[in-house]
């Protein structure tokens, strides 16, 4: 049996260059690696939620007259809870008047409203209606407390209540629930500077 040809001193590959076999092997290796990455990315793309309608899109609330029709207290400062968008629509001038105790002669809100997301920025609980005793929003789950403008005053929440941008088209309020904006940071005090010590507790 004759000896098989092997790489000798003469035929061996120059130092620093790879053989064809090594090249092919690495090509396959990198190819499989790349394919796995693509598969992983594809998995994320495939499992990306497919949200249709409802929360996540634009929600039409109606005109100010419609809102007062649905909830007469809105004119005197009570936030209007609109569950389809999970928001409180706060009539800012009336709300401020309510907290200050001057419910007569409330100015018209016009564009001065806030669409506060009812999901507590702490751990996602639903924030209940404005507390009558303190005129604050008081989350029942973990005791975060917010003013009527959604500024945080007490509790474990990391910021004020989040809000949605809204547009007014021909007097109709439209809330874009696809674009959530972070609430004001802790320490923001544009209105209602009472502290927790001066307040009656609402949650039992």
């Amino acid at each position: 049996m004759s000896q098989l040809p092997t790489y000798g001193e003469v035929h061996g590959p120059p130092i620093g260059e790879m053989t064809r076999r090594t090249f092919m092997r690495r090509l396959i290796g990198w190819g499989v690696g790349l394919l796995s990455l693509e598969f992983l990315a594809g998995t994320f793309a495939f499992t990306w939620p497919n949200v249709r309608g409802g929360l996540g899109g634009k929600v039409v609330l109606g005109s100010a007259t419609d809102i007062v029709g649905a909830s007469p207290d809105w004119a005197t400062g009570q936030p209007y809870s609109y569950q389809k968008a999970r928001i409180f629509l706060v009539n800012v001038p009336a709300g401020e008047a309510l907290v200050d105790g001057k419910t007569d002669n409330v100015p018209d809100p016009k564009k001065n409203v806030l669409a506060l997301y009812r999901k507590c920025p702490h751990l996602g609980c639903q924030i209940p209606q404005l507390c009558d005793k303190s005129h604050w929003f008081e989350c029942l789950c973990h005791g975060s407390k917010y003013t009527i403008l959604g500024e945080k005053r007490a509790g474990p929440a990391p910021r004020g209540m989040d809000r949605f941008p809204f547009t007014i088209e021909n007097g109709i309020y439209v809330v874009d629930t696809g674009k959530l904006e972070d609430g004001p940071p802790i320490g923001t005090e544009t209105f209602d500077k009472r502290t927790i010590d001066q307040m009656p507790h609402c949650a039992a």
Binding site: C125, Q126, P158
Partner: peptide, 28 residues
């Protein structure tokens, strides 16, 4: 009921330690 948060909303027990610490320290 997504619109009615109960008075007590707790995570499963093995995450309760984390939830407890969330009320002491910086959330992030």
């Amino acid at each position: 009921h997504p619109y009615v948060t109960p008075h007590v909303a707790k995570a499963p027990w093995y995450f309760l330690g984390l939830q407890e610490m969330l009320s002491y320290f910086n959330a992030t």
